[in-house]
Write a protein that binds this DNA or RNA. Sequence first.
DNA 1: GTTTGTTTGATACAAATGTTTATATTAAAA
DNA 2: TTTTAATATAAACATTTGTATCAAACAAAC
Lengths: 214, 214
Amino acid sequence: MSKKDQITRERILNEAEALFAKNGYDAVSVREITTAARCNLAAVNYHFGNKQKLYLDVFRARWVPRARRVQEYFREFLASRDTVSTSAVAQALAEAFLKGPLSDEERQRQSQLMTRELIQPTEAFELLAGEVLRPFFKELADTLKPFMPEGLGNEGIALNILSMFSMVIYFNFARVVVSRITGRDYDAAFKDRLVEQIVEFSINGLGGGKKKGA
Amino acid sequence: MSKKDQITRERILNEAEALFAKNGYDAVSVREITTAARCNLAAVNYHFGNKQKLYLDVFRARWVPRARRVQEYFREFLASRDTVSTSAVAQALAEAFLKGPLSDEERQRQSQLMTRELIQPTEAFELLAGEVLRPFFKELADTLKPFMPEGLGNEGIALNILSMFSMVIYFNFARVVVSRITGRDYDAAFKDRLVEQIVEFSINGLGGGKKKGA
DNA sequence: GTTTGTTTGATACAAATGTTTATATTAAAA
DNA sequence: TTTTAATATAAACATTTGTATCAAACAAAC
């Protein structure tokens, strides 16, 4: 428990985030949150106005900062490489999102909250898109542009980024399917394997890639 | 309106599916459903037992059959090709899921319902996984196996399929992001473009692919 | 020590929730 | 026609919901 954890407002944010991520907005009651945060029911109203605003503040105070940390990790990973290339970008992306600076629990929360907003956008999506997604996509596009085939326009680049992104996102939020299909748990070794997969697939698609056994 | 639409039970299933997909299980009340279906509140209890069982029956009676139609479309598309190859499989997959036999509304519902189950699996996920996902993955793996690099084990094949799948899924449920990033609506032309993207990326990854302009 | 602004606490309340019950209506069978 | 089963309806149930109220406790400033 950090020092801030003592403060009611912070405790509420923590518990609210965990519950919203796990069960979704409507399935979580204010009472659940305040009970988990060991505070009074009225505290939510006092600190955040109402449930909706609390939900939004979870994104402001938790989701967005964490997303920034992931992006920062991505930048540093890329900077640590001697040369930038498409494969380096793909690897940095996969590393940042599948391993990166977040704990496994944080990673799950993060992708659950985002995916919920993708399926059914609320006000939080505007925040998420404006403050995180758009700028990061622009950054990625600028980074990748020099290494892309000549004729590929901005749209082509965008779609390539989205393709990489889809894997990163999917391998995070669809763990239950990935585990069921591959029969593997999300331990460190498997995450390494997934990073490898994303990088290889991003570079070579289905056919190529380094042959593992042969 | 079909003939079956006259029957209360079917009307409830239709409206329940639409509402569950759009707003999620907890955000939808039984009253909303019965109002939309123009029937009495108690009809849900009478025909399905309770709300949970109705939700499950939506998957049984609507989702699973539709998924089968998509898979059938995939098979026929693949069979119509003179030769089977990785690219043919990728194309059939993208065509089936992004265009295929479903209406655009159906496609959205389908992926919304599934994605909700991926984020937060309920009993419906077991149905979905056992009756649809697993068999289809096995079918895909068997189809692709002969064309995969020698050393690639079953896990490698599975991960490649999942990588393709991630794009197909993502481009369906994250429309709001894809549209915002690319600035394009999900019309026929853009869906063609997405199919092309998925196929190209699946075959060549980032670097290769046919140069569009140059 | 008093005052001031902030935070917490217990309680209240109207609205909405899923479910049940008892009754009415309709359709089919005898 | 009478009987029987299937379906639909209206009303009520006990809970749970988000939010509001108001007094108590608290900390900091004067």
